[in-house]
Simulated assay, not measured.
Amino acid sequence: MGTREEIAFDRALGALIGGALGDAMGMPTQLLSPAEIKADYGFVDCFIDPAPEHPVSKGLKAGAVTDDTEQTLLMASVLLQSGDSFDHHAWVNALVAWEKDIKARGGYDLLGPSTKRAIDAINAGTPPEEAGRSGETNGAAMRIAPVGILVPPGEALIARVAESCRATHNTTLAISSAAAVASVISHGIDGADWREAIGFAVAAARAGEKQGHWVPGGTIAARIEWALDMVEGCSIEEGIARVFDRLGTAVISQESVPAAFAVLKLAKGDAWEAAVIAANLGGDTDTIGAIAGSMAGACAGYDRLPQDRIGGLVGIDLDDVRELARALVRARLTDEKARHG
């Protein structure tokens, strides 16, 4: 048994790398239906190259991470630089610079619809607090892992989630989704296993509903409960069919975030199994895989992730990720110590 910091660091690194595994596995199958995935690739159970005609992933190598991982690590850096108050302008500037770098490398416009609208509004003079009032897609939840690592469970976590969402996803649906995911990760950092951690997700989602601008749509809390019930006792094949047919796997928060919880349960908390399931699910596979993988990784730890698969990741510097994970954990423990004397 290691020290508290060592255990928390293992969980934090597990969250970030677990998310990367899910992202990379879903990269070649994103935007495809389960039937198209099966026709193009068969059953995906390892890193593969995307089809040459893939609309967004063509040209990427097997195991390559996408915007999901890159924006998560970007969020970690901005959080650490921001101190006690999240720096909205630094976050927006970082996203803009990141997008320019992606295009310079020959990539595609990977900013999601909510983030893109918010950045355009801020560049036109809209205050960051107002720019995200229509952002309801899953971008907030996909990159929220660093907040869950940094902040312990409780009211402060919900507040920091809402603050980090403000500039791009300042809506009840997006904040609720991000709060549910961050809560699972934060409880994982504290030592909870996946079964215990998901027990806190619905309450966190309901707390998140009280933040941001209201937008219509089924509540995230209720849809997470539905998603978890939906896959109870299912085989993986049946679970994939139920999630795709009934719940949906689109970019909207009400579909992809509950789908990630269903994937976590189908995988029994195994991050690699979650990545495989998500890759074959159809729809927003990379983001669903990233969210499910980050939750699973936080609740299992880095040492329980498949090291051979980690070695196949492309486009991620493991030493940089370790430094970010270590810094987030130290900031978390320092804040806890200050609050408790």
Rank of each mutant, 00 (worst) to 15 (best):
G106D: 06
D120C: 13
E70P: 09
E129C: 04
G135S: 01
I122N: 13
A145K: 10
E136S: 15
N93Q: 11
M75V: 07
I175F: 08
T168H: 05
Q71A: 02
W91Q: 15
I119L: 14
G83F: 08
T115Y: 02
L110N: 09
A97D: 12
C165M: 09
A167P: 03
D101Q: 14
F86D: 11
T171F: 03
W91T: 14
T137C: 05
D68Q: 07
P128K: 05
E99W: 01
A121S: 11
E129L: 03
K103E: 12
K61I: 10
A76M: 13
P153H: 06
L80H: 09
T172E: 09
W98K: 05
G135F: 08
W98H: 01
I119Y: 09
E70M: 11
G106N: 07
P152Y: 12
N138M: 11
S186A: 14
S85F: 15
L150S: 04
D101E: 15
V56M: 10
I175R: 06
K103I: 08
I144L: 09
A179V: 03
G107P: 11
A76Q: 10
S177V: 05
P146F: 13
A97Q: 12
A174D: 09
R160I: 11
A145R: 12
G135K: 07
I119F: 07
A104K: 12
F86L: 03
G132H: 02
A121Y: 03
T115G: 04
C165N: 00
I144T: 01
L95R: 01
K116R: 15
R166H: 10
E70F: 08
L173P: 00
L79D: 12
L80G: 02
A174N: 11
R117G: 00
G135E: 08
C165D: 03
I144M: 07
N170R: 11
D67P: 01
V65C: 06
G132T: 08
G154T: 08
I102G: 00
V184P: 12
I185M: 01
K116P: 00
